[in-house]
Design a binder for these strands. Structure first.
Lengths: 197, 197
DNA sequence: AATGTTAGATAGTTGCACTACCCAATGCAA
DNA sequence: TTGCATTGGGTAGTGCAACTATCTAACATT
């Protein structure tokens, strides 16, 4: 498949594909000559993934590169790779000394989480933002949310494939790609509950 | 409170405050003279809300303006105002003729949702993105997620205040501000489940 | 009266995600 | 084989968003 055909198959302009190549998001095709290269189905899938991550999940090109790099080369520890991949997901938050709100929340729930884990920073930031906006995450809400979130996460974890490479792709992309789905469903559930009152 | 004091109170540079004024995010202070104006606690809160919505929830300045405009002036119908406010939340998706995936999902769940509702578009887009990434939202996953999401949404709706103005602010800002919290907690639940295995 | 600060307006900067252009090397048709 | 369109790869430019810096006249403070 020539680049123009890859362009047609993914509905993406050729200059944009070149941009993805330059940025290291898309692996080069196998060169057929100095002036043409062959792209295959894996490239088509890759472009679709890139566009889904950037447009719908809302990742920047940099973040997408980071996530895909981990998926492409997870390294020996799945657990560690998962953490590294998640550190590229938004929102990006500055490193801090302490995470009082997040520690309080996790302590109340009894969840075991390494404080160095990026999601702890994100939680701290998110709780602080909710406070600033005037809808604080009080303990009652936390306790109401927690079992449901855990139920969702439990389903996620139960479905993880055996194969390590597939596992990391499933875990990372599933975490990222299902977040907008969950957000949209929550908004629609609000709507449905309001409508049936 | 002078603008410089508002700047100090919110840890926001004066030029940025001026930018928010120009963009219509921040209401003008009451002028004390031609060259100074008085800002009060409501302005401090407003700046905090603006920064939380833009930095943590990830709204653009335009989207923030749209959301705040609805919160400031909800109009007669709460239900309608809620829909209008949510249409400003990300991800922004183009209007389409049909929403096959979203309709199938909502049909399977038996949720009553107006197809013109913006969250339906967002759901359609999110499901399509998950498919593209290789982690499709199959019916089993949908059925596993749905009761938990509904549980979260139920708690949200139960807490809505009586006063209409407070209700719309609570509903809109709560929907937006708790999304990052839920996302972070889900990521941490993954971590906790993996760790305790 | 001298000095410094402020509000408001205008213009400039930075970063990101493309997008347009150019060129040499093909591939293809006649 | 000749000529022309196409391709890959590189460089440079564009458009937008979110600030940020500068300027000016009108104040307030000393």
């Amino acid at each position: 498949m020539l680049m123009s055909q890859l362009s047609a198959a993914t509905d993406t302009p050729v200059p944009t594909l070149k941009f993805y190549l330059r940025e290291g998001l898309l692996p080069a095709g196998t060169p057929l000559s100095q002036t043409r290269a062959d792209y295959d189905e894996s490239h088509v899938r890759r472009v679709r993934v890139i566009r889904a991550l950037t447009e719908t999940v809302g990742l920047s090109v940099q973040q997408t590169r980071g996530v895909l790099a981990v998926v492409d080369d997870p390294g020996p520890s799945l657990f560690d790779a998962f953490g590294r991949a998640l550190s590229h997901l938004p929102p990006e938050v500055p490193e801090q000394d302490d995470y009082p709100r997040a520690r309080a929340a996790l302590g109340a729930l009894g969840w075991m989480c390494d404080p160095g884990y990026p999601a702890v920073r994100q939680l701290e930031n998110a709780i602080a933002a909710a406070e600033a906006v005037g809808v604080p995450l009080d303990e009652a809400r936390l306790r109401a949310y927690a079992p449901h979130i855990r139920g969702i996460a439990q389903y996620d974890m139960d479905g993880i494939p055996e194969d390590p490479d597939a596992a990391i792709a499933y875990a990372v992309l599933g975490t990222a790609a299902h977040e907008p789905v969950i957000a949209a469903l929550r908004r629609l559930a609000h709507q449905d509950i309001a409508a049936t009152r």
